[in-house]
């Protein structure tokens, strides 16, 4: 059985270590904050200018001056800090954030990432994605394995890139891949997912090292 969105988020949360500074993208990556392993503390960075992001507010306690990068109302924690956009991206581009977990449209076997633009359609913009993938120490992609039955793990991205050779790990509903200079390696399969199914739904070439 393929992983659910929650399963994927739980698997991504297992990549977090005590003391990490973490930036979570919009969509499935946001769910990761629900599965932070017990006994570890991480600080969530929100690129609009906040470190130490708390949960959503109780109804009636929303503050229009306190939002995350998805423009959702949130809360602060006792250790929260606020800063301006230049300092926020100084943190990101300067390599101070330990891991960025974000969604993708396509990932290539060399780590190229495309997640901001489909030519011919209205483009909303890259926001902070290009900065995150260029500057954060480790980039983990959380995405469905296919889109309308078309593979998203490709030999080469066909969409305009967000970053070149930037992805370190891809977690899909079917399994986990690691990407390094040598290429892409399948390291885990979701329960009851066969290697054949993964091969069928993946265009990228990869080696298999499932424990």
């Amino acid at each position: 059985m393929a992983w659910s969105r929650d399963d994927m988020a739980r698997r991504a949360a297992a990549e977090l270590q005590d003391g990490f500074y973490v930036n979570l993208g919009i969509g499935i990556p946001t769910l990761v904050s629900n599965f932070i392993p017990p006994g570890i503390t991480v600080q969530l960075q929100s690129e609009n200018g906040m470190l130490g992001m708390g949960p959503f507010p109780f109804e009636g306690e929303e503050d229009p001056d306190l939002i995350n990068a998805g423009k959702q109302t949130i809360t602060e924690l006792p250790t929260t800090s606020y800063f301006d956009s230049a300092q926020s991206f100084g943190m990101i581009r300067g390599g101070h954030i330990d891991v960025s977990i974000l969604g993708a449209m396509q990932v290539a076997q060399n780590g190229d990432l495309a997640n901001w633009m489909i030519p011919g359609r209205m483009v909303k913009g890259m926001g902070g994605a290009m900065d995150l993938v260029a500057g954060v120490k480790r980039v983990v992609v959380l995405m469905e394995h296919t889109a309308r039955n078309e593979p998203k793990l490709l030999r080469e991205c066909t969409l305009p890139l967000t970053g070149k050779g930037v992805v370190d790990m891809v977690i899909t509903d079917l399994g986990v891949f690691e990407i390094d200079r040598a290429g892409m390696t399948l390291t885990e399969l979701a329960p009851d997912v066969s290697l054949d199914e993964i091969r069928q739904k993946t265009e990228a070439s990869f080696i298999v090292r499932v424990e």
Binding site: E47, D84, S85, A86, S88, F89, G90, I92, R93, D112, M117, M126, G127, G128, A129, M130, D131, A134, G135, P160, L161, T162, G163, K164, G165
Partner: peptide, 29 residues
């Protein structure tokens, strides 16, 4: 890119005409 935008503004305000960044290398940007 959002960080490039913020840094371009910071640089402009600080009298820095240009700077180099990894953001966007190998992309349309």
């Amino acid at each position: 890119p959002q960080g490039t935008l913020a840094e371009r503004i910071r640089a402009g305000g600080a009298g820095i005409p240009a700077f180099f960044t990894k953001t966007g290398v190998g992309t349309l940007i």
